[in-house]
């Protein structure tokens, strides 16, 4: 390693470029690659829950089918549509940001965040029904008692496992929706501050990428939990 790089262009180091990167492309690639690695991590984390779900479903298929009927597939489908739509608006936010259309980016980001709140609202309605019906996880499960009969039928006590997994999976996903919405909120703030340009829109891109992960997890979670039959 004899020679040294004579000049690596500090003179044209733009403001948004951190000092240890040589070019904006390098910084953008690094950020995007980092987010992909993080997404892999997240998928493995949910993977653990999915595996647990499949194992217990394999052990008690009929109980799981009976238990899943107590979920409201209509609300679940509505949430699926909301999330799919928000993924589209997140992608549009990236597009408009690439083109330097700041106001359009603001609009798309706001719609995306609004979708997150709609999603959480619907989730709240679903959860409160479950709480009311005693469809709680583990030792708080009471839907096997006569007072919680549904159409004259009670669930077997073994169904507590289904709801344990339901709450863990949707709960963890809900947490990710909130984290994703907060991240997009920060991106929105920076957009309003005018940080982004066609040369620099990395946070919008990786924020949207994370949002797609949130969507992706739901795309697997929804059929698995709501449409077992």
């Amino acid at each position: 390693m004899a020679s040294a790089h004579s000049d690596h262009g500090h003179g044209d180091h733009p403001k948004f470029l951190a000092h240890h990167f040589d070019t904006p492309e390098q910084q953008f690639d690094a950020a995007k690659f980092g987010m992909w690695v993080f997404i892999v991590t997240e998928i493995l984390m949910f993977g653990g829950l999915f595996v647990a779900y499949l194992i217990y479903k394999g052990q008690e298929p009929s109980v799981f089918i009976e238990a899943h009927r107590r979920l409201d597939w209509k609300l679940g489908s509505a949430n699926t549509i909301v999330l799919l739509f928000s993924s589209l608006t997140a992608a549009l936010a990236v597009r408009s940001s690439q083109l330097g259309k700041k106001n359009e980016t603001t609009m798309w980001l706001m719609i995306t965040i609004a979708c997150a709140f709609v999603f959480m609202g619907i989730k709240y309605v679903e959860y409160s029904h479950k709480f009311h019906d005693g469809l709680l996880p583990g030792r708080y499960f009471t839907a096997h008692l006569p007072e919680h009969a549904h159409n004259g039928q009670v669930l077997p006590q073994r169904a507590n496992m289904y709801f344990a997994l339901y709450f863990m999976m949707t709960g963890l996903h809900g947490l990710h929706v909130l984290i994703g919405a907060s991240a997009l909120g920060y991106v929105l703030y920076r957009n309003l501050r005018g940080d982004f340009s066609p040369e620099y829109f990395t946070p919008v891109e990786i924020g949207a990428l994370y949002w797609h992960l949130v969507d992706l997890v739901w795309i697997y979670l929804f059929p698995l939990v709501y449409l077992v039959g």
Partner: peptide, 8 residues
């Protein structure tokens, strides 16, 4: 499992 009784 310890805090909420989720019996996985």
């Amino acid at each position: 499992e310890r805090t909420m009784g989720v019996g996985i």
